[in-house]
């Protein structure tokens, strides 16, 4: 990858090559490739990035803003580790009959602790993440959902995390 930034946790792993669809110039590409995890923590981080990438300092945040507004980037900033912040997370799944699917989705989504919810092509067709700051709250949310829907919820909290994160190369 580009020389000056020292990649940390993810440097051992390669990056996925992006395939078309977006119109990026060399500077955009350099920013995206270099800044997926090593944004400096210092008084003038843009100056460091500008030096490393040989770009105009003031231009970099403007480009990031543009890439965010175009949806090429989904965010800029620190990515927090929920469990390390004292939060609790789980992945849960339900097998929902087709004719009840939308109603059940509404009941599940109404819980503010449900952060993501996806329909998947499986007998267990609804998969959602529950995140909370309050100990014991996950079990409560699960039993609330079971009571509201009359359907069993399969609770699959992680036992161990092997890897999280992925770099893309554009």
């Amino acid at each position: 990858m580009s020389g000056s930034f020292a990649y940390t946790a993810q440097s051992a792993k390669g990056a996925l090559k992006a395939a078309g669809g977006v119109d990026l110039d060399d500077a955009d590409r350099a920013i995206i490739n270099a800044l997926q995890g090593d944004f400096p923590v210092c008084d003038n981080p843009w100056a460091e990035v500008a030096k490393a990438l040989n770009l105009e300092e003031a231009d970099i945040p403007l480009r990031i803003e543009k890439l965010l507004s175009e949806g090429v980037l989904s965010r800029f900033g620190p990515l927090y580790h929920a469990e390390q912040m004292g939060g609790e997370l789980t992945l849960a799944a339900m097998g929902v009959p087709d004719d009840r699917f939308d109603d059940v989705a509404e009941l599940v989504n109404a819980h503010e602790e449900v952060a993501h919810n996806y329909e998947r092509d499986n007998d267990w067709n609804m998969w959602f993440v529950i995140a909370t700051d309050r100990p014991g709250r996950i079990a409560e949310v699960i039993s609330e959902i079971e009571n509201e829907t009359g359907l069993p919820v399969h609770n699959m909290p992680k036992t161990e995390e092997f890897f999280v994160g992925l770099r893309f190369e554009v």
């Binding site: 995890g37 923590v41 990031i64 980037l73 990515l79």
Partner: peptide
């Protein structure tokens, strides 16, 4: 507590 700081590409947009 912070996994990393930087930009997060929208993988869908990247193909």
């Amino acid at each position: 507590v912070i996994r990393r700081i930087g930009v997060v590409p929208n993988h869908y947009k990247l193909g």
